[in-house]
Each structure stands twice: as structure tokens, then as C-alpha cells.
Amino acid sequence: MATKHMEHIQPYSPQAGTMIPTKFRKFLRTCVLWQFIRFIAINIKMTLLILKSHH
């Protein structure tokens, strides 16, 4: 996979030990259609969490 979207990461630095999002993953973060779907999904998840938390 091409890595043109990545900036140089200094080997052996703390940053080099982390996950790096792919170009597609970054695109999805602000893709309105996908994020609308995630908006619905996250809201459902949060609603379930609230229902589970009330005693």
C-alpha cells in the first residue's frame, strides 16, 4: 500500500510505536455519508448505555 499520505516518522521515537491511520480511514472520518451512518449508530449505542446505567 502506498504511504504517500504519511509524513516522515522518526524511527525509534515514541511516535514510531503507534498505529497510523490509512488514507481511507482518514477520509472516512469526515465523509458526510459515512459519518451520518456513524452518527445514528453512536446515538443508538449511547442510548443503550444510558438505559443500562439507570437503576
Partner: peptide
């Protein structure tokens, strides 16, 4: 199943 996290525009809207 209830401990989740993701970053994106949807989070900002919320």
C-alpha cells in the same frame, strides 16, 4: 460490547 470509541465528524455533531 458497551465500551467503544471512534473519532470522526459524527462525534463532533453529537
Amino acid at each position: 460490547s458497551m465500551t467503544t470509541g471512534e473519532i470522526g465528524l459524527a462525534g463532533h455533531w453529537i
